[in-house]
Each structure stands twice: as structure tokens, then as C-alpha cells.
Amino acid sequence: MIPRRTRQGAVFQQDMQVKAIPTLSWAEDASFQFCFDGIEPGGTVSVSTIGVKRDKESMEVWKAGMDEAIKRLKPSAVVVYGGDIGYKFPCKTVYFENAVTEKMKNGR
């Protein structure tokens, strides 16, 4: 399975018989009206935590969006790109580190 950042890319991959994991993305509460459209409830989704931990307002927006995604989509699993930010997911969770988060851990 390949995490995808755009739904268009995911649709293309699915058409090519490649399993795709939709990436969740949102902004303020107003975006909740449309940002989860087209994502099948009960499946696996991916989300990024990069850039959230160091800014209180970003963290609040991220948590509100993740809470709403969990409520609406009830995912069976979440693939998290970036570090653990202390959010308690109610389902299976897999974390993927990257070069940016590794550098941050090492103080570079």
C-alpha cells in the first residue's frame, strides 16, 4: 500500500489496481464540511504530524480535525507520517519517521 497526498492520485492508483491510503488534510473547523468527503469510512487513512508539535495553535487545529475525522470516518487504522504527538488514536496506529523528524530528534 502506498500513502497518497491527493485523492486524485489515489483514484489513479486504484484504477491501476494499486491499493492507496487516503491522506487526511484539513484547516479550520469550516473545512470539516468538505475535507473528509470521498474517504470511505472504516478503512485505513494516513495523516501527517509534521509541523504541529511546535505551535500550540497548530496543535489545537490538528487535534480538532483528527477528532472530527475519527468521529466521521471511524478508521480501522491510521498511518501517521511524522512523530508521535501524544494523540490517543482509538484504532491501530502505525508511525513512519522521516529525515525531518529524525533531525529534530537529534537536535540538528
Rank of each mutant, 00 (worst) to 15 (best):
I2T: 10
P3I: 15
P3V: 11
R4L: 11
R4V: 15
R5G: 13
R7E: 14
Q8R: 04
G9I: 15
A10C: 10
V11Q: 14
V11Y: 09
Q13R: 01
Q14N: 09
Q14V: 11
D15Y: 15
D15Q: 12
V18P: 04
V18H: 04
A20F: 08
P22H: 00
T23N: 03
T23P: 00
L24R: 04
S25Q: 11
A27D: 13
A30K: 07
A30L: 15
A30S: 14
S31W: 14
S31Y: 07
S31F: 10
F32H: 14
F34W: 09
F36C: 05
I39P: 05
I39C: 10
E40A: 14
P41D: 07
G42W: 04
G43L: 06
V45D: 08
V45M: 11
V45A: 09
S46T: 15
S46Q: 09
V47Q: 01
V47N: 02
V47E: 06
T49P: 05
I50L: 07
I50G: 01
I50A: 08
G51P: 06
D55L: 06
D55K: 01
V61W: 04
V61D: 03
V61F: 13
V61K: 08
K63Y: 11
M66H: 00
M66G: 01
E68S: 10
I70N: 01
I70P: 01
K71N: 15
R72E: 00
R72H: 00
L73G: 03
L73M: 05
K74C: 06
K74M: 13
P75R: 11
S76C: 08
S76G: 12
V80W: 06
G83H: 05
G86N: 13
G86P: 06
G86W: 10
Y87M: 03
P90Q: 02
P90W: 02
P90M: 03
K92H: 10
T93F: 04
Y95G: 03
Y95C: 03
F96T: 08
F96K: 03
N98Q: 08
N98L: 07
A99H: 04
A99P: 01
T101S: 08
M104P: 02
M104W: 12
K105C: 12
G107L: 00
G107D: 00
R108P: 03
